[in-house]
Write a protein that binds this DNA or RNA. Sequence first.
DNA 1: TGAAATGTTGGGGCG
DNA 2: ACGCCCCAACATTTC
Length: 471
Amino acid sequence: MSTAIVWFRRDLRLGDNPALTAALASSARVIPVYLHDPHNPGGSAGRAWLYHSLRSLQQNLNRHGSRLIIRQGEPGALLDELIAQTGATVVHWNRVYDPDGIRRDSAIKAALIARGLAVHSYNGSLLHEPWNLATTGGEAFRVYTPFSKAAIRAGIRPAVLPCPAALPPVPPEYDGLTLEALQLQPRLCWDQGFYRQGLPGEDTALARLRAFVDDPLHRYDEARNFPDRPGTSGLSPHLAFGEISPGQIMAALPADADNPGQTVFIRELLWREFAWHLLYHYPHTLDHPLDARFEAFPWADAQAENFRAWQRGLTGIPLVDAGMRELWATGWMHNRVRMVVASFLTKNLLISWQQGAAWFMDTLVDADLANNTLGWQWVAGCGADAAPYFRIFNPVLQAQRFDPDGLYTRHWVPELARLPLTWLHRPWEAPTEVLTESGIVPGRDYPLPLVDLQQSRVRALETFQTIKTYK
DNA sequence: TGAAATGTTGGGGCG
DNA sequence: ACGCCCCAACATTTC
């Protein structure tokens, strides 16, 4: 009776799980394991989310007659122990694509094979493996549109594996840690605001997908831009932990529909694919700009006070502060606002995208290494198919356009709630008597702007001139 | 998935 | 009736 180990990582689901399905098909005994590496723990918000996601996976495995073995340490050593204890002859996992993960998995795979074990890895989180799409010249893509065309040509509706009906039991002698022992949950309950859309896990992910396809999808092209409306899918954290696969998402979209909402939503999914394609082929972009000219950009990272004010939502620019506070309270920020706060940090404050990206990785529940890296480099103007450097968002105009009723800003910056809409997005220009009537003393109840938007815009353009060269 | 500066056009007020 | 100016509305260019 052969024993297989299924190593769960960023694929915390039973449905459409190629590693699990393959193990069940070929081995009578299947041991699901989660190996927590304390040296590679993920961001703070992500850990809180992970706790619930793992709990959901445990419950799902239990419901299907199995059990999750949790251990903590260096994954290669932990697998060795498990193999010795269980007599497993084969290990299955779904691939990860971050540079460190690839290095780790390659080493583990080689070591196991050298010892006579069978190791099988699968694609469980992308519509296309990064190495399966290339330009006509055989190169990796650097521009989104040709990438997306190639992806669509190759097919973006993969077959979806069903959730297994039943799983074989895990013998009781195989022990593991409790989930609590991993200490993923924060001591102070600062994560309470993270779960308003439902607790993490496969069931919530599938329910959200159904709810999204049912209604907001058809207005997605417009509604996704307004941070106070439920126009987005809310699937990002579920995708980031593999509680749902992109193939499952595609399968839920009507195959014959050709409405703008669906088209734009698929485009966003393909941006995620593009991000992983880029990170796989250009792993140095994790912390270096793809556009090498930006290596010489004189970032003002020494301005630690400005960075702290940005992190805390105390920049004095209402939409920026609203976004940063939404992030802190919920572990999530609306994408339109992500672009605005990132533009403000990198252009108006001249603080490097790497600092912003690190903060996002720590505070976002949907922290996805490739998406985050691509997004920050895109805004900073140094990435693949990036916005040109001179594309600088004006947070006042963005607020007037995308928070036209001020609901989002008033919710997250309550100290400005009584300010009339005319001045809500630019309180520093409000007449004194209006501020008095609204009970606001600038600098006491709400910060004065960290920088003048017009002046800092001009300064950013001038600074860009110092690295600009013609190729 | 930008914003600001600059250019163009056309209607209306007015001498 | 005509020319002139103003300016909103839109288009184009520039950063």
